[in-house]
C-alpha cells in the first residue's frame, strides 16, 4: 500500500504546515513563505523541463510579467490580485506561446532554445525598465494599508495571511501536477522528454503537447509573480526579471529531483533554508560576505551533480518506502 502511505505522509506534512504560524514566530513564518514561494515556482518550472523536457532558463520573465500585471492593475485601478492573477497568467501564457512557437516551429532545440528563453527575459527586463506606466526604473510601489487587519480580497494584511495564501497556491499547483502527470497529456510529455522521434511515431502531436507545457508552466509561474508583487509591495524590473531569479528558481527542482512531484518542493525548502542560514551567518560576521548565499548554492549544486544527478528525492523516496508510487 505505497500509495496509502504517501497520502498519509502528505496529509501529515500539510497539517504541520497549517499549524506552523501558531507555533513559530514571525521570522519562521517569513522564512516558510519564502520556502513555499520558491517551491511553487520550482514546481511550475518543473512542468516544462521535468515533465516535457524543454529547458527554460528565463522563467523570471513570467514571474515579472505576473508581478507587473497584478501590481499595475492594483496600482492604477484597484483591481483585486485574484483578477490580476488571471490577467497575468493569460499574458504569460501568450508570451510563453510566442517563445514556444518560435522555438518548436523553427526547430530551435536544447541549449539554443534555452538561450531563446534568456533573450526574451532579458529584453523584457530592459523594456519594463523604460516602461513609465509601471514606474520605469524608479520602481512600482503598491499602496500599503495598516497591517493589523487582513483583507484577503486585496491581499493586504499580515504575514500569516500571505503564508496561508502561498500554502494554498503551492498545494493547488501540486494537485494540478499530480493530476496531469497521470493523464494523457502527462504521458505525452514524458514520452517527448525521453525521445521525441519515438513519441511522434506513436501518434503524438509533439508541437501541440510542448506548447501546452510551455503555456501552462508560464501561466502558473505568473500567478506566483502576482503573489510576489503583493507580498513585497515593491517592483523593480531589475530584480523582478533578473537572470539570477531564473537560475535560483530552477535550482530547487534540480537539487530535489526534476520530473518528480516532491523533488521541487524538497529542493526549494533545502535551498531556501540553506540560503537563509548562510545569510544569517554572514550577518554575524559583518560585511564582506555579500555573495555567501550564491556560493553556498553553487557548492550544493556541484555536490548534487557529482553525487546524485537525479536529485535528492528519488533516493529519499526509496528510503521512505514510497518508490512504488508511479509519480515519485
Amino acid at each position: 500500500m505505497a500509495m496509502g502511505r504517501a497520502t498519509r505522509m502528505l496529509i501529515g506534512l500539510m497539517v504541520a504546515l497549517l499549524l506552523a504560524p501558531f507555533i513559530g514566530n514571525d521570522y519562521l513564518v517569513s522564512v516558510l513563505i519564502l520556502c513555499l514561494f520558491n517551491a511553487y515556482l520550482a514546481q511550475a518550472w518543473n512542468i516544462m523541463m521535468g515533465f516535457a523536457g524543454q529547458l527554460s532558463l528565463g522563467h523570471a520573465l513570467y514571474v515579472g510579467l505576473g508581478a507587473y500585471a497584478g501590481g499595475a492593475l492594483f496600482f492604477h485601478y484597484g483591481t483585486p490580485p485574484w483578477i490580476g492573477m488571471i490577467v497575468g497568467a493569460a499574458i504569460a501564457a501568450l508570451v510563453g506561446g510566442v517563445i514556444g512557437f518560435l522555438g518548436f516551429r523553427f526547430g530551435v532545440k536544447g541549449v539554443y532554445f534555452a538561450l531563446l528563453t534568456i533573450a526574451f527575459a532579458e529584453f523584457t527586463r530592459i523594456l519594463f525598465d523604460h516602461f513609465t506606466w509601471v514606474g520605469g526604473s524608479s520602481g512600482l510601489y503598491l499602496p500599503v494599508v495598516r497591517a493589523d487587519h487582513d483583507n484577503l480580497l486585496l491581499l493586504r494584511g499580515r504575514p500569516a495571511m500571505f503564508y496561508y495564501v502561498i500554502l494554498g497556491l503551492s498545494a493547488a499547483v501540486f494537485l494540478i501536477c499530480h493530476r496531469i502527470l497521470g493523464s494523457r497529456l502527462g504521458y505525452y510529455w514524458r514520452a517527448i522528454r525521453e525521445d521525441q522521434d519515438a513519441a511522434q511515431a506513436l501518434g503524438i502531436d509533439t508541437f501541440k503537447a510542448k506548447m501546452a507545457a510551455v503555456m501552462l508552466s508560464a501561466a502558473l509561474t505568473a500567478v506566483g509573480g502576482v503573489f510576489y508583487a503583493f507580498y513585497t509591495n515593491t517592483l523593480y524590473a531589475e530584480s523582478a526579471f533578473a537572470m539570477h531569479r531564473s537560475i535560483e528558481l530552477i535550482l530547487g527542482a534540480i537539487i530535489g529531483g526534476m520530473g518528480t512531484l516532491f523533488g521541487p518542493i524538497l529542493g526549494a525548502f533545502l535551498l531556501t533554508l540553506l540560503g537563509e542560514l548562510l545569510t544569517r551567518l554572514a550577518e554575524n560576521f559583518g560585511h564582506g560576505f555579500e555573495g555567501v548565499k550564491q556560493i553556498g548554492y553553487g557548492l550544493i549544486l556541484l555536490v548534487i551533480i557529482a553525487l546524485r544527478r537525479e536529485g535528492v528525492w528519488p533516493r529519499l523516496a526509496k528510503r521512505l518506502g514510497l518508490d512504488g508510487e508511479k509519480a515519485s
Binding site: R184, Y187, Y188, R190, A191, R193, E194, D195, D197, A198, A199, A201, L202, G203, I204, G259
Partner: peptide, 24 residues
C-alpha cells in the same frame, strides 16, 4: 513503425512505454 536503432522511453517503465502507444 519500429526504429532500427531502438528508441525506448528509457526513464519510463516498460508498461508506461506501451501505454503511450496505446493512447493513440
Amino acid at each position: 513503425r519500429t526504429f532500427q536503432i531502438v528508441k525506448p522511453f528509457g526513464g519510463l517503465t516498460v508498461r508506461e512505454n506501451v501505454i503511450v502507444g496505446a493512447l493513440a
